Amino acid sequence: MARPAFGGGELPAVFPDWSPYQDLDSAARAYLRDPDVALEALGGVLRGATVLGFTLERFVNEVNGVWQEVVVCDGSRLILWHGEDVAPGDGPPGSMTSSLRVVPLSSVTEVGCRRRLTRTAGGQARVDSIDVYLLLSSLDEAGPNPAAPAEDQGNSVRHDALRFGKTLDDGGAGQITRLEEFARLVASMVGRPTL
């Protein structure tokens, strides 16, 4: 089964598994459509720093095409690369954006990890999905809170957050485990002096 790719080609509906690869270069080359773009951008910020952990995401968006993300932790920062195909009409065919964001670990105020467990026929619990969030001290866009009562419809202030998720259908057991390892790595560093 394949999905139409941006520009008319076909992409596999299930991407290769990056979870067996312990090093960023191999994982990115196995999983991302544009690993050279991602690794060049990340390398310009890492500049030889040790990669302590990472997580990868990729999916096909029906409107824009391929969306890709790499998040790296080097002990003092989270370095996020995001690549996304440009929507038809917003640029020449085959255009994409490449974005980089650096977040100091000192700005992570909370790490949350929710695992959904199911029982096998034999009664064993197994993780079938994981959702991770990293709450940041920076503020997200403030605006009216539509869920608030009418008398409290003033602007709401929300903290920025990074969110990641994997399921058995979207990534498989290996990527669920790797995302949980990444969350634990970041959680172990929150509130401690950074390297």
Score class of each variant (00 low, 15 high):
57 E>L: 07
68 Q>A: 04
19 S>H: 04
119 R>L: 10
11 L>P: 08
98 S>E: 02
38 A>S: 08
179 L>V: 05
79 I>F: 00
174 G>D: 02
13 A>S: 02
60 V>D: 14
24 L>E: 06
9 G>Y: 12
187 A>K: 06
20 P>T: 01
142 A>E: 12
37 V>H: 01
146 P>H: 06
146 P>A: 00
11 L>D: 14
36 D>H: 09
110 E>Y: 14
183 A>G: 00
100 L>K: 01
175 Q>P: 12
71 V>T: 15
176 I>N: 09
189 M>H: 03
82 H>D: 06
130 I>G: 13
129 S>Y: 02
134 L>D: 15
116 R>I: 10
100 L>P: 04
64 N>C: 05
64 N>G: 12
72 V>P: 12
15 F>S: 04
62 E>W: 13
12 P>Q: 04
176 I>W: 07
88 P>G: 09
47 R>Q: 14
132 V>I: 15
140 D>I: 09
165 G>Q: 06
105 L>A: 05
187 A>P: 06
61 N>K: 01
144 P>G: 13
81 W>F: 03
140 D>R: 14
132 V>T: 14
58 R>N: 00
152 D>M: 04
8 G>N: 05
155 N>Q: 11
77 R>C: 02
13 A>Y: 01
42 L>K: 03
162 L>C: 07
195 L>I: 04
161 A>Y: 08
154 G>W: 03
152 D>Y: 03
108 V>G: 11
39 L>A: 04
4 P>M: 06
71 V>P: 08
181 E>Q: 10
189 M>R: 14
144 P>A: 05
166 K>Y: 08
173 A>F: 13
180 E>S: 14
139 L>C: 12
138 S>T: 13
71 V>A: 12
165 G>M: 03
98 S>Y: 00
26 S>H: 07
12 P>E: 08
141 E>L: 15
96 M>D: 01
36 D>P: 08
4 P>N: 11
186 V>K: 05
147 A>C: 08
149 P>N: 02
63 V>G: 11
117 L>T: 07
50 T>E: 04
183 A>S: 01
125 A>Q: 14
32 L>P: 08
31 Y>R: 10
152 D>N: 07
184 R>D: 08
161 A>V: 15
159 H>W: 13
34 D>A: 05
52 L>C: 02
56 L>E: 04
186 V>Y: 04
175 Q>Y: 05
128 D>K: 06
176 I>F: 09
71 V>E: 13
156 S>R: 14
116 R>Q: 07
161 A>R: 15
92 P>Y: 09
87 A>S: 09
142 A>K: 11
103 V>F: 00
93 P>E: 08
55 T>V: 09
51 V>H: 03
145 N>V: 01
136 L>T: 06
97 T>W: 00
176 I>G: 10
15 F>V: 03
9 G>P: 15
165 G>T: 12
27 A>V: 01
163 R>I: 10
189 M>Y: 03
137 S>F: 10
8 G>D: 09
83 G>R: 00
179 L>M: 08
71 V>C: 10
9 G>H: 13
55 T>H: 14
128 D>E: 12
33 R>N: 10
